[in-house]
Nucleic acid binder design. Structure first.
Length: 664
RNA sequence: GCUCGUGUAGCUCAGUGGUAGAGCACUCCCUUGGUAAGGGAGAGGUCGACGGUUCAAUCCCGUCCACGAGCUCCA
């Protein structure tokens, strides 16, 4: 057999040659440095046979970004071996230490275990020490294969339900590969794992720049009905600098965490007496929410939306009609019973808007009808899912429902997408992913209304609209709403957790259930389509996200306190009040710090509060009717005309400017 | 909801089987200072809640609640 090298040279090899033999044939130096191979573009390890005629490139430590994944994968096995050693050393039976899966993830790896006892954070450092010892021992990895039946017997004999199940899910006749590192030798246990690979050739090449980070529970195969395993997470890098940088970034992210900044900047609080997931907006937070609403109202007014208002409660029958009961009941607060009638707090505004649509006959001339309301909804989210403002139980939706004909759908749907893209541009949101969330046929009648044909045709319609609008997106099965497919905009929080921000959903179900109709140009009664949209998400989640996005350093229009005037001495308080008054007259939020403190302390306090403009006034300013300021937005200035300064800030705020031009 | 962890003053955190401390913040007094902490005094806590063990519990045990990490779920 032969392989082709990247430079086009042909290399003849004995039958069944592995990646290691390719490296050896090229040269002994390369053989020592080799960590893996790239076979026809795919990363493989040195232990696996290469196919005849393949193009093979030998990978070394220089191929950092590729081999780091091989290393992480092998580190997961080393972790598993270390955990096994750790527990066997304290007397556990080796067969009681069961392994789930141990894949590579972004920045590192994890491994899931079913163990005779719970691991504690103290165990982690002991396990880490054992991992380092395994690396120091430079154990060679050995790859071998077994036919599916033999592999199955092997794990059945060991009474291992997890690996048995994994193999059972592989197709009949499949050859199963295993990786083994080390032989049984005193306290060192040999470790063999069912694994597809690829791995580095020996543990000695693994970097010491790794750290076990967290201990957590994880359901076997991600299924909440199945046993919960113990998951150990680790991060690993090829250099100490990369590890340090990662740990530093993690710390930095914590400083941006909206829960921390939200408390420091007095934006919101959560109170035990009120309940989990029910945030209180402090005055400063309320300002941010109201600025967002002001923006949305302006934009929607231009977009032909009409504002409506609806109650927080309704009788059961409304939600039976809408289909929220039973499809959505799990997420609703339980009913309250009054005079033998059940009332529910609303989890969504749509049924109310449908009733507003139905409040009078509609003609095709009324469509598209766009009804907007930032209604407060309540959803009974799982305790464990709650997170600051990003996942709450009381939320104000940036909601609207667009009723339109099938012909109008594409246009309206794309207009909504354009709307939230315009918002993202305003906020400077660049890293997001559009997810086209579709149903899963097996969920029909359970998670999704049982209308298979309608689901398919609606999804096709959405896909056509997206393609026509040249929007880049990916498709995700089993992520739709119960009433139809949707577009979700996925973003990441400061600490890296992914969640949905904006959403745009199609509803082909509820208009029919509510007998919503319009009379078309032929006098026929037709059922409209409904688009649910929340381009600013919920105001809770949006503010939570924006706090992190800006690191608390809001653009002027969103800043709760836009300017703080600091008088240098008590005799300047009068003029400081004049300055604040002039700014307020210009429509700005400005305060005077008249407290009994030195100016330095006041400047510091304002800086910590991230006030965009700190205005300093003393004798010079008072005499000349000017201000001096330091700003988070532009260069510091002294002796600026007060009226010009007020105009400068007012213009920034009115235009919702991100960048600031200097004062003319 | 599940697994693990945490819970002491408004915040950040010490601490002990004999009912508690620091720094910052807060209040008052002195200081009137030109761009990130001037000085002093004072006030502030049922040590998350409820049970149990004990002569005695903030500390040990149990249950619950809240929060955190992750899983599941989701705007």
């Amino acid at each position: 057999m032969h392989v082709v090298l990247p430079d086009g040279k042909r290399l003849d090899l004995p039958e069944g040659a592995t990646g290691a033999q390719v490296a050896q044939a090229i040269g002994p130096g390369l053989a020592r440095a080799a960590l893996g191979v790239r076979v026809d573009g795919l990363v493989r390890d040195l232990l696996t046979e290469v196919p005849d005629g393949a193009t093979v490139q030998v990978l070394t430590a220089r191929d950092d970004e590729v081999v780091v994944d091989l290393m992480r994968h092998t580190l997961a096995h080393v972790l598993a071996q270390a955990v096994k050693e750790h527990l066997v050393a304290e007397g556990a039976e080796p067969s009681d230490v069961r392994m789930g899966i141990g894949p590579t993830i972004e920045h590192g790896f994890y491994y899931d275990f079913d163990l005779p006892r719970s691991l504690t954070p103290e165990d982690l450092s002991a396990i880490e020490d054992r991992m380092r010892a395994i690396i120091a021992a430079d154990l060679p990895l050995r790859r071998f294969t077994l036919p599916r039946d033999e592999a199955l017997d092997r794990y059945r004999e060991q009474g291992d339900p997890y690996k048995t199940e994994l193999i059972q899910d592989l197709p009949e006749g499949e050859i199963i590969s295993f990786y083994q590192q080390g032989e049984g030798d005193g306290e060192r246990v040999g470790f063999t794992d069912l694994c597809r690979g690829p791995h580095v050739p020996r543990t000695g090449v693994l970097p010491s720049h790794f750290r076990l980070t967290t201990l957590a529970g994880a359901y076997w195969r991600g299924d909440e009905k199945r046993p919960m395993l113990q998951r150990v997470y680790g991060v690993a890098f090829t250099t100490a600098e990369a590890l340090e940088e990662h740990l530093w970034r993690t710390e930095e992210a914590k400083r941006r965490d909206h829960r921390k900044l939200g408390a420091e900047l007095d934006i919101f609080v959560l109170d035990e007496d009120i309940g989990p997931g029910l945030p209180l907006w402090l005055p400063r937070g309320a300002i941010i929410v109201e600025e967002l609403e002001r923006l949305a109202k302006e934009v929607e007014e231009r977009g032909g939306y009409q504002r409506v208002r609806s109650p927080h409660l309704s009788k059961e029958q409304l939600f039976l009609k809408s289909g929220h009961l039973p499809y959505y009941e799990h997420d609703m607060f339980p009913a309250m019973v009054l005079d033998d009638v059940k009332y529910y707090v609303k989890p969504m505004n749509c049924p109310f808007h449908h009733k507003i649509y139905a409040a009078r006959p509609r003609s095709y001339r009324d469509l598209p009808l766009r009804l907007a309301e930032y209604g407060t909804c309540y959803r009974y989210e799982d305790h464990g899912a709650l997170m600051g403002l990003l996942r709450v139980r009381s939320m104000q939706m940036n909601d609207a429902h667009i009723y339109c004909t099938h012909d109008q759908f594409e246009d309206e749907f794309l207009k909504v997408i354009e709307l939230y893209l315009a918002y993202f541009e305003l906020f400077g949101i660049e890293s997001y992913v559009m997810r086209f969330s579709k149903h899963a046929p097996e969920g029909l009648g359970q998670k999704y209304v049982d209308e298979g044909e309608l689901w398919r045709s609606t999804e096709d319609m959405v896909r056509r609209a997206l393609v026509k609008g040249k929007v880049s997106f990916y498709e995700a099965d089993d992520e739709a709403a119960f009433y139809g497919p949707k577009i979700d905009v996925q973003i990441k929080s400061a600490i890296g957790r992914e969640f949905t921000l904006a959403t745009n959903q199609v509803d082909f179900v509820q208009p029919g259930r509510f007998d919503l109709v319009y009379v078309d140009e032929h006098g026929e009664r037709q059922t409209p389509l409904c688009i649910h949209r929340a381009p600013l998400s919920t105001h809770e989640r949006m503010v939570g996200f924006l706090i992190e996005h800006y690191g608390g350093d809001f653009p002027l229009w969103l800043a709760p306190e836009q300017a703080r005037v600091v008088p240098i001495a008590d005799r300047h308080v009068g003029y400081a009040n004049d300055v604040a008054g002039a700014l307020r007259d210009a429509g700005l939020r400005a305060d005077v710090d008249a407290g009994n403190e030195r100016m330095n302390a006041k400047v510091r306090a304002a800086e910590l509060y991230k006030v965009p403009y700190i205005v300093i006034v003393g004798d010079k300013e008072e005499t000349a009717r000017t201000v001096s300021f330091r700003s988070r937005k532009e260069d510091d200035r002294k002796g600026v005309d007060l009226a010009a300064f007020a105009r400068h800030l007012a213009e920034q705020a009115e235009t919702r400017a991100a960048a600031v031009a200097p004062i003319a």
